[in-house]
Design a protein around this nucleic acid. Structure first.
Length: 866
DNA sequence: CGGATCGAC
DNA sequence: CTATGTCGATCCG
């Protein structure tokens, strides 16, 4: 396996269009061959703004590849060998954790939308059709695919490929109805099945299989849907399209509940004749499912059966359409399946990743495995772990319910829009729609993101996070319009020419937080009543309270003036000017401050009778007796010097992360968290921290040593894995405790997660702050950037003192972790989560690698894919 | 945190 | 003429 021979250079320029046309064009029938398809597409595309943008994106990918190749050139044989050891250690762990005991099924409706349309309009049968519009197609039927007409292709191009193409508009209502019918069937086999969109689902039928063993035959008997069925239907249960006459609507004939006790032999024969009995194997179950789907909906489905979701999904592709495929639960069967499988077929590996891997000479999954050591050096941990899982055929073996939603958005494409008036009103409209959707799910989020696509197809997103959650049209728009204003300003005096706008809200409170907040608010109100501060009437809701309060403070608070100004602005958005240039304070209303402040103090101690407010500007505790007092204090703060007070904030230095977070001097739990660590670290008594630091610095030292030690590269040995293993056993190289070092490599990322970044202080953005370390004025776009600046300062100056005393290492700059090539997602929820998350826990990683060290060094890995 | 990118349906 | 909409994940600065 002489790897380096594939010097597949990443020549550019190709590929832009390859993604569109392409693919298997079986001979026979009309249709176009690949070449013609690509030619037509190219002609339709060339010169368009869209195309220009595609070229640009392609160049970016090529640059990424170039960077990666440069990185690769610098890798020495020794590094590679070391990586091989570490990766193979992980491979052993992964192999040991392989779980083949589940039976996962992936069901995939064939050309779903198109199939539904064809079912409902028989005149479309035998014709090439696509579902969507002239500007975008969602899917096409198999007939159309022969012409290169595919999903995600604009209709007008499809028409050029296939002039007879019928384009049917989307009809989502219908598809969801059909989808629901299908899901009803699926639920019988796995009540916890996981739908992925309207036309796909995963099932875990492990339990069903067990129960089914005891089922009488009649419980596995199913009937053909119609009176008009013929003999041949029985023989071929996969046969489709034979039931089109017989009232599609009349629901399926499922007699499983009606016991087949019928003394009339003639009738019984009749029944038996029109029925099929399915066996008890996984294949039979899936045939049964597909049979029932077809009987019920007249639509066909394909399916994959395998021990995990990744494999099930991939093998459902094998016998499309209207077929199924199983990977039996044996390791070798899995490896056989993967051997020649192109990586592009793997969910989670898309166009870009495919291209990057191809540049490394990797096209199939077995090659992905062979290059595992190299990949671990070139890609991020998440990425190469994912690659490793893929090449071993590991995936999640149970179906997790998807967690809570993380964001909600709406976006629209339109013909060029270039006046600010239009843009603002569209923005408002989007906010209105979004607010409605949010309301339906009762969600509020703290981050609003505006998305814009200009007429050259360049996409930009601009986000802003506010202190308290937003959900109404006005609240969202208040944020979004500022973002939009900034963008309009940024191109002024030219108009902003856009073809798409979108608004997204994210940063929802988690369920726990929601409860917590609720509790703290109510307890605050209670305590507020106790001190007779609020004069609340018993029945009043929180909302009313806030509204009243903000109205009450209208008496002249700085915020309210600004808000009034803003509202004026809203009514009459000024085209290119000034909208985006409002004062930074403008984002948050005073009501927000009050609410937020309250929350913080309440978290700390809700039983405290005396309320302590923390001024969001100076972070000083204001033990005030009234909100008015607080508000006027805030006004003073805002009018006066921001900076002097800023110095009062407490510093917290986290030695492990080399980060320094500034905290307001309030007693919320975050502070407590941070301060817990502080004394130890400063006193240098935290053993674990300092030892882990040392080992990291050691390993990075070693690393540089190795780098400088061998500048040239040479042909790689034929079997890295073996050589690396030998070296390990003989200890002939890298004598300094190879295994331990490699453990460090695995572990060093672990401890960082914990107590990191929860301690950022929140406050106004966009101000000028004085760095307490270097004393220079820092004009900051965000608090984060200010924090970052202080980090740097501390690293350079202050901390050095500490370092001398305590032998603090400074930044651990380690190429192994910095320059990696960007990553892949590990697919959607479903692809691999369990395997991925579980295994890298600190304990498992540690103990497993110890195990590996003691007894596994020789019986490690036999060659895969031989 | 914010922005860009990737990938899936 | 005419190249989607919605979501989650990851990476980098």
């Amino acid at each position: 396996m002489d790897d380096t021979k594939n010097a597949c250079n990443s020549s550019s320029s190709d590929g832009v269009l390859l993604r569109m046309g392409l693919n298997d064009n079986k001979a026979g029938m009309q249709g176009l061959d690949k070449e013609k398809i690509n030619k037509i597409i190219m002609e339709a595309t060339k010169g368009s703004r869209f195309y220009e943008n595609e070229l640009k994106k392609d160049q970016q990918v090529n640059q990424r590849i170039e960077k990666m190749m440069q990185l690769k050139e610098k890798i020495t044989t020794q590094q590679l060998l070391k990586a091989q050891l570490q990766v193979d250690k992980l491979v052993v762990e992964l192999e040991q954790s392989r779980n083949l005991s589940n039976t996962i099924v992936h069901i995939d409706m064939d050309a779903f939308y198109a199939a539904v349309e064809m079912r409902d309009k028989p005149e479309l049968k035998e014709k090439p059709i696509a579902v969507g519009s002239m500007s975008m197609l969602s899917t096409s039927n198999y007939h159309a695919r022969r012409f290169g007409v595919r999903a995600a292709m604009p209709g007008f191009i499809a028409k050029k490929l296939c002039p007879h193409l019928t384009i049917v508009p989307l009809n989502f209502g219908k598809y969801s109805k059909v989808s629901k019918e299908v899901r009803e069937i699926l639920a019988e086999y796995d009540p916890n099945f996981m739908p992925m969109g309207l036309d796909e689902a995963y099932l875990n039928i492990t339990e069903h299989l067990e129960e089914r063993l005891n089922w009488p035959e009649n419980r596995r008997r199913f009937f053909f849907n119609t009176e008009g069925t013929t003999e041949s239907d029985k023989d071929d249960i996969n046969m489709s399209a034979k039931f089109n006459e017989g009232g599609c609507s009349s629901s399926p004939v499922l007699f499983e509940d009606t016991p087949l006790i019928n003394d009339d032999p003639e009738q019984r024969d009749q029944l038996v004749e029109n029925s099929v009995v399915f066996g008890t194997s996984a294949e039979e179950v899936v045939k049964e499912i597909r049979f029932r789907i077809e009987q019920k909906t007249q639509l066909t489905a394909s399916a994959g059966i395998a021990p995990n979701t990744l494999l099930a999904k991939m093998c459902s592709d094998c016998n499309k359409p209207n077929g199924q495929c199983r990977i039996v639960p044996e390791r070798q069967a899995i490896l056989d399946f993967l051997k020649d499988l192109p990586i592009r077929k793997v969910p989670g590996i898309g166009k870009v990743t495919e291209k990057m891997l191809k540049a490394l000479g990797i096209v199939t999954c077995s090659e992905l495995y062979q290059q595992r050591a190299l990949l671990s050096l070139l890609f991020s941990e998440a990425s190469w772990h994912n690659f490793l899982d893929i090449s071993l055929g590991l995936g999640s073996t149970h179906l997790e319910k998807d967690g809570e939603r993380k964001s909600m958005s709406t976006e629209r494409t339109f013909s060029e829009m270039n006046t600010a008036d239009d843009q603002y009103s569209l923005c408002r409209e989007l906010c209105r729609d979004l607010a409605q959707d949010l309301q339906k799910e009762g969600l509020k989020g703290k981050t609003v993101t505006l998305k814009l696509k200009n007429v050259n197809f360049e996409v930009k997103t601009r986000a802003s996070t506010v202190l308290s959650s937003v959900s109404t049209e006005e609240e969202i728009f208040a944020v979004a319009k500022d973002l939009l204003g900034t963008e309009i300003d940024s191109v002024a005096p030219h108009p902003l020419r856009i073809r798409l706008m979108g608004v997204r809200v994210s940063g929802f409170l988690s369920e726990e937080e929601r409860k917590y907040q609720q509790k703290s608010i109510t307890s605050f109100l209670k305590s507020g009543k106790e001190i007779g501060l609020l004069g609340l009437q018993p029945g009043k809701s929180n909302q009313e309270y806030f509204r009243n309060k903000s109205e009450a403070s209208t008496t002249g608070s700085f915020f309210d003036k600004k808000r009034a100004a803003r509202q004026l602005n809203d009514e009459n958005p000024s085209p290119n000017k000034s909208v985006g240039k409002q004062l930074f304070h403008d984002r948050k209303s005073s009501a927000n401050f009050v609410e937020e402040t309250k929350k913080v103090t309440d978290l700390e101690d809700s039983s405290d009778v005396r309320k302590i407010f923390t001024c969001p500007v100076c972070f000083e505790e204001q033990s005030s007796d009234s909100l008015e007092e607080l508000n006027s204090h805030i006004d003073v703060c805002l009018g006066g010097t921001l900076v002097k007070d800023t110095v009062e904030i407490t510093k917290n230095y986290d030695s492990r992360e080399n980060t320094c977070n500034f905290l307001p001097q309030l007693k919320n739990e975050n502070v407590d968290e941070c301060q817990k660590n502080k004394p130890d670290q400063l006193a240098g008594t935290d053993q674990s921290a300092s030892t882990s630091e040392n080992s990291i610095s050691n390993s990075s030292e070693k690393f540089t040593q190795i780098v400088s030690d061998k500048p040239h590269r040479e042909r790689q040995p034929s079997n890295l894995s073996d050589i690396a293993r030998n070296m390990c056993m003989k200890q002939c190289l890298l004598p300094e405790r190879i295994s331990q070092d490699s453990e460090d490599h695995f572990e060093k990322t672990e401890p960082t997660e914990e107590n990191g970044s929860s301690c950022f202080f929140e406050g106004k953005e966009g101000s000028v702050l004085i760095c307490p370390v270097c004393n220079s004025e820092q004009k900051t776009r965000s608090l984060m950037s200010f924090n970052r600046h202080v980090d740097v300062c501390l690293n350079k100056g202050l901390i050095q003192e500490l370092t001398e005393k305590r032998d603090f290492p400074t930044k651990t700059s380690n190429m192994e972790n910095s320059n990696r090539v960007g990553a892949l997602s590990r697919g959607q929820q479903c692809t691999n989560p369990s395997q991925g998350t579980k295994r890298s826990g600190p304990t498992t990683s540690q103990s497993a690698s110890k195990k590996a060290k003691s007894n596994n060094s020789k019986n490690t890995i036999e060659m895969f894919f031989k």
